[in-house]
Amino acid sequence: MTEPVAPPESIAVPPAFVSVENASLYYGADSDVLALQDTSFSIARGEFVAVVGPSGCGKSTLLKLISGLSLPTAGRVIVDGQEVRKPLKNIGMAFQNPALLPWRTTIDNLLLPLQVVRPHRHEFGRKRRQYVDHARALLAKVGLEGVDDRFPWQLSGGMQQRVSLCRSLIHDPQILLLDEPFGALDAFTREELWDTLQALWEEQKFTVLLVTHDLTEAVYLADKVLVMSRRPGRVTYSAKIDLPRPRNEDTRFTPAFVEHVRDLRRHIGHARSTP
């Protein structure tokens, strides 16, 4: 094996926290569906990266690779200096479907990761009060107060998605993986949640990979946007978004922002028309 060639501007780039190196992945009983082909990219610690691309190009698959839920058929994934060979144990995930447990109240849904993840699971009995306070504080940050004892079906879709977001963050995950978490929400709720997520990220600077089909969302939230080609997917373009933070509604109407979106759209169009 040869060492991966460092990009020329590596002096300026912070060391990679997550790095995907020439990863390919086949699906299907006979491994005949090539979902990802020879994909490479990296994410720095605390970086906010968004992935966009045509439907079915392997975006969700990419998240599975990074979390170790799937292993690459060829190439490798490295997280924090270690090659990923089995599922990582401290990841936060949220999806388009909030996937809350309907028999648990909001608070108990939030406590789920702490009952599972090490070392918290062993301290859960002792530290329950402390964990509950932590969960309450997190709920307050996303604008959810007084719903602690409600069940998921007593919450609106937007509220459920907020709870789901909190659940993905409560245990201080190594990496946050978001798969179109705002895809099913109405425009206003979605924009509200962008700001919620941005504020949480500004405060805690976790490492995020956000899959989305909304270019505005990608540019608004991310430091870097990756564009994938249609299946078999690979990262064909990477755009650095250097807009000042915190970004707000006005940012979305600045010429620089619009230019970024237009640039991505061009590359997506390109990705869709060429295999």
């Binding site: 839920l69 599922p87 990582l88 996937a99």
Partner: peptide
């Protein structure tokens, strides 16, 4: 999705069965 969430928290199959 729930299974993914659980597994990426380091949950064993028994954990997933018991909690979910």
């Amino acid at each position: 999705e729930l299974e993914d969430v659980m597994r990426s928290l380091g949950a064993s199959r028994l954990d997933i069965l018991y909690r979910v």
